[in-house]
Simulated assay, not measured.
Amino acid sequence: MPQFLDAAEVKSFAGVVIDCRFSLADANAGREDHGRGHIPGARYLDLATDMSAAVGVHGGRHPLPATHVFAQTLAGLGIDHSTEVLLYDDSRFAFAARCWWMMRALGYPEPRILSGGYAAWRALGDAPETTVSSVPAIEAPCVPEEWPGACDKEQLAALQGQSAVLVDAREAQRYRGEHEPIDPVAGHIPGAINLPWQSFSNEVGEFLDHEALRACWGDKLDASPMVVYCGSGVSACVNILSLAELGREDVWLYGGSWSDWCSYL
């Protein structure tokens, strides 16, 4: 079950801190923000280059990388299956949750997540670090060949044949097809219900308490099987994070999400 760390506790955290900041509007912004200032000692993971594979005709805008490639990326930051990790972003957990899901799926110790993100830490008044230091690489651990808990379009169809509840984590306007700023086709996968990923945190990036999370899910909380998707398999991880907070560990992520599904139309 996830553990959220308050900003005041960061100084006493003895593990590796990972900066996951990213912008879908500007793929360079997160790394540039890291260079301008980050929590001292934090290492950077880039959604597009570290947490995704190359984009193809199908697979979505942020396809999951090969499991061994991601394990090697983490090893390059000094992370193996014995490393405690703290993740943060500045986007209400969207990118930190993607890293959380990936690490947990591959058997790493479940990362902790900074409540309130980078802004909460900056509000303490501590000086950010601007130097980016290299880290000695270590040997990558063995990981599964496939991503546990991730499904593709064909597997999604099979799960829907088992009456799976399919949850679209995008904003309501995108779900309804009224506004599509990123993908070439608007709309949603037939049969999906909508529960936007922003529902699970407040505007300052603090996760809701368990009572509020249960209220968000309502009578769908115990639905099984359940598959969650978004635009490209990123913000849907916030929904999965909320379910993990409530004890659900059996939820599927449609990795390619809408950007994969609509590529077949």
Results as ranks from 00 to 15, higher is better:
residue 2 P to E: 13
residue 2 P to L: 09
residue 2 P to S: 04
residue 3 Q to M: 11
residue 3 Q to T: 12
residue 5 L to W: 07
residue 8 A to I: 14
residue 11 K to A: 15
residue 13 F to S: 08
residue 15 G to A: 04
residue 17 V to R: 11
residue 17 V to L: 10
residue 19 D to P: 14
residue 23 S to V: 13
residue 26 D to S: 03
residue 32 E to N: 13
residue 33 D to Q: 13
residue 37 G to A: 06
residue 38 H to G: 06
residue 39 I to D: 05
residue 42 A to T: 08
residue 43 R to W: 02
residue 45 L to Y: 09
residue 49 T to V: 07
residue 51 M to Y: 04
residue 52 S to E: 02
residue 53 A to Y: 10
residue 54 A to Q: 12
residue 55 V to W: 00
residue 55 V to A: 03
residue 59 G to F: 04
residue 60 G to H: 01
residue 61 R to H: 06
residue 67 T to V: 04
residue 70 F to G: 06
residue 71 A to P: 02
residue 72 Q to L: 08
residue 77 L to P: 06
residue 78 G to P: 08
residue 85 V to L: 09
residue 87 L to N: 14
residue 90 D to Y: 03
residue 90 D to E: 05
residue 92 R to F: 00
residue 92 R to K: 15
residue 94 A to Y: 06
residue 96 A to W: 06
residue 99 C to W: 10
residue 100 W to R: 06
residue 100 W to Q: 05
residue 100 W to A: 07
residue 101 W to G: 04
residue 103 M to N: 13
residue 104 R to Y: 01
residue 105 A to M: 10
residue 105 A to I: 00
residue 107 G to V: 08
residue 109 P to F: 10
residue 109 P to T: 10
residue 110 E to Q: 14
residue 116 G to H: 11
residue 117 G to M: 01
residue 124 L to H: 07
residue 139 E to T: 09
residue 140 A to M: 14
residue 140 A to T: 10
residue 142 C to I: 13
residue 144 P to K: 12
residue 144 P to W: 07
residue 145 E to Q: 10
residue 146 E to Y: 11
residue 147 W to Q: 12
residue 151 C to Q: 11
residue 153 K to S: 00
residue 153 K to H: 01
residue 155 Q to D: 01
residue 155 Q to N: 14
residue 157 A to I: 07
residue 157 A to S: 11
residue 161 G to W: 01
residue 161 G to E: 03
residue 162 Q to P: 01
residue 162 Q to I: 00
residue 165 V to C: 00
residue 165 V to W: 05
residue 166 L to D: 11
residue 168 D to C: 01
residue 172 A to R: 12
residue 179 H to A: 10
residue 181 P to E: 06
residue 182 I to S: 03
residue 185 V to C: 05
residue 186 A to E: 01
residue 194 N to V: 03
residue 195 L to F: 09
residue 196 P to T: 06
residue 196 P to E: 09
residue 197 W to G: 00
residue 199 S to Y: 04
residue 203 E to Q: 14
residue 207 F to I: 12
residue 208 L to A: 09
residue 209 D to I: 05
residue 210 H to K: 15
residue 214 R to E: 15
residue 215 A to K: 13
residue 216 C to W: 12
residue 217 W to Y: 14
residue 219 D to C: 06
residue 220 K to Q: 15
residue 222 D to T: 15
residue 223 A to N: 05
residue 225 P to R: 03
residue 229 Y to V: 09
residue 231 G to T: 03
residue 231 G to W: 00
residue 232 S to I: 00
residue 233 G to D: 02
residue 233 G to A: 02
residue 234 V to C: 08
residue 235 S to W: 02
residue 235 S to A: 15
residue 245 E to K: 15
residue 245 E to D: 11
residue 248 R to D: 05
residue 251 V to S: 13
residue 252 W to M: 08
residue 253 L to Q: 09
residue 253 L to R: 00
residue 257 S to V: 02
residue 259 S to R: 08
residue 262 C to W: 05
residue 262 C to M: 04
